[in-house]
Amino acid sequence: LVGAKSSVAGAMTTEKVSDYKDATSYNNYYEFGTDKADPARNAGTLKTKPWTVEIEGLVKKPGKYGIEDLIKLNAQEERIYRLRCVEGWSMVIPWVGYSLAELIKKVEPQGNAKFVEFVTLADPKTMPFVGSRVLDWPYVEGLRMDEAMHPLTLLTFGMYGEVLPNQNGAPVRLVVPWKYGFKSAKSIVKIRFVEKEPSTAWNKAAANEYGFYSNVNPNVDHPRWSQATERRIGDGGGLFAKRTKTQMFNGYEAQVGQLYAGMDLKKNY
């Protein structure tokens, strides 16, 4: 799966891209296990064909999209984004997809649609850890409408010029580069337009630790660790590499800062 280089502002960082091996073997995808190595080991069972994504809720054109049609809906672009995990590590990943806004425009949300909710697959037959008490399945994420419409918000089908590996959220996932990684829902089966803020998986599990917004913010610490710095995975320095400073909105402040003008980001973490 190849995409043309994106011309969206901020979409092509020139930082060193992480190794494909690291990006596909160090994953958080709890449906396949809580250890970072589990998803690569266990996600082989995920069946990505056939796959449909249902568009429902407050839209004028609800419906079901087969994954093939969804891929062809718009020209694919390559975007090289920083990915910052809430746990304090980061990578740089070349994704392939198109702005979620392209899909949203096609399905025409109604005026009262204020949020977009992403429901992901929860299939106990192919996902061994669905049913564990870690989270309330299915994994649900959400964005405010203006966040969802932002051109950097990527509906993603591939990475490193290939279709997404299962452990990275095949066949279709979201990538929201200015938010902590868990906001970017994997293996999406439903996109729902709603009026009220959706209750999201990690927020339900630990509201004091994971807020709805979860924008990358070096000034607001996680209750159990600092968010001021991050460890860039595989940056060459190995074990003794220094941690790098985390940037406001993961370095996308110029592009997305205005979405949060006037908001208290300590309260809306």
Binding site: K21, D22, S25, Y26, K36, A37, W89, R231, I233, G234, G238, L239
Partner: peptide
């Protein structure tokens, strides 16, 4: 640590 065998995040 010396053979790069501690995974993607050796510090962790």
């Amino acid at each position: 640590a010396f053979t790069n065998g501690l995974g993607a995040n050796p510090a962790e």
